[in-house]
């Protein structure tokens, strides 16, 4: 088991290296001059050149990449062109917020999704199935920024129960456990959870139906097990796939929350990324994308290892 985990960890290194090259290059292919955002349009050529060499933008790309990756390995992702603050610090603060949101949303989505999917799979073809499948279909189809706005209109504007935006009572500063903070989390987390809920529900529905149609469930009945005991076998068989789908969803949520974070002004990485795109803040962009990609790789690693402990067949392949 430990060996398997270590092996998987070794696989991460080339993947991470490739990811870093891709996200560095993509940004340099994109049009737009990062200095345009901080320099007045009538700045002298001399000043422009000075700034360019200050940020290292005048050197060959390969050198820029080498320097960037060398510093990144030491935890230094440079300084934001727009704000002058350390990129690592900004990303760290934003990541914490995004992780909180992603985990909350995944928990909601996974709990509801597996419940609905399980019911639908067990009672396939019945009313329960149609209802559960309808809900999950809706979850996948509804645009979540639209849902976010509707939730804000209903629960913040009309009912006044929950705040419409922000990361907490003190803005993005400070975090604590308590209803004062959780209130801010509820609407964005629910909005974010509908897509994973739909996907997980649909996956688990077909998974459960497939498992129930296999010979071994009939064999379990033939040795006298009660329906409840048979369903326990079904859950254990479905768990590895369910967990890997959940992990992938978590990975997506960690990076793909620009829309929701912008709608709710949630101070996470999506919000940071959005700002960095508009100001062409290269160091922030590069750093954020790199960190998000690493999140994804890490989540996949964890999912693989967890799967391997539940399903003995996986370690072999």
């Amino acid at each position: 088991m430990l060996l398997y985990g270590l092996k998987r960890l070794l696989h991460v290194i080339p993947v991470a290296f490739g990811v870093s090259i891709v996200c560095f290059m993509l940004i340099h292919i994109a049009p737009g001059d990062p200095l345009a955002a901080i320099l007045p349009s009538d700045a002298s050529a001399e000043l422009q050149a000075q700034m360019r060499s200050f940020y290292g933008l005048d050197r060959p790309l390969i050198v820029q990449y080498g320097l960037w990756i060398w510093r990144a390995l030491h935890g230094d992702l440079g300084v934001s062109i727009a704000t002058g603050r350390s990129v690592s610090g900004e990303i760290a603060a934003a990541s914490v917020n995004s992780i909180i949101l992603a985990i909350a949303a995944t928990l909601i989505g996974f709990t509801l999704g597996s419940f609905l999917g399980f019911l639908a799979g067990v009672f396939r073809g019945g009313l329960v199935d149609r209802l559960a499948s309808g809900i999950s279909m809706l979850g996948v189809s509804v645009p979540h920024y639209w849902l976010g706005m509707v939730l804000v209109i209903v629960f913040s504007v009309h009912l006044g129960w929950l705040p419409a935006m922000g990361g907490g009572p003190g803005g993005s500063d400070g975090r604590a456990v308590g209803w004062d903070y959780i209130r801010y989390l509820v609407l964005p987390a629910i909005t974010m959870s509908v897509i994973p809920m739909g996907i997980i529900a649909r996956t688990i529905r077909s998974l459960v139906a497939d498992i129930l149609s296999q010979d071994f469930t009939q064999a379990l009945a033939a040795k006298g097990l009660m329906t409840r005991q048979i369903l326990r076998h079904v859950i254990r068989n479905a768990a590895p796939t369910a967990i890997s789908v959940m992990g992938l969803q978590l990975g997506y949520l960690l990076g793909g929350s620009i829309l929701i974070e912008t709608v709710f002004s949630w101070p996470g990485t999506g919000f940071l990324l959005n700002g960095a795109i508009f100001t062409r803040d290269l160091p922030v962009l590069q750093g954020t994308i790199l960190v998000l990609a690493m999140f994804f790789v890490l989540v996949n690693l964890i999912v693989d290892v967890v799967q391997g402990t539940i399903d003995p067949r996986i370690q072999r392949s």
């Binding site: 010979d215 071994f216 064999a219 590895p240 399903d311 003995p312 067949r313």
Partner: peptide, 14 residues
Amino acid sequence: SMVFQEPRLALDPV
């Protein structure tokens, strides 16, 4: 009790 045709399919893999 019953013995099934395909033991590989009739036993729970996990």
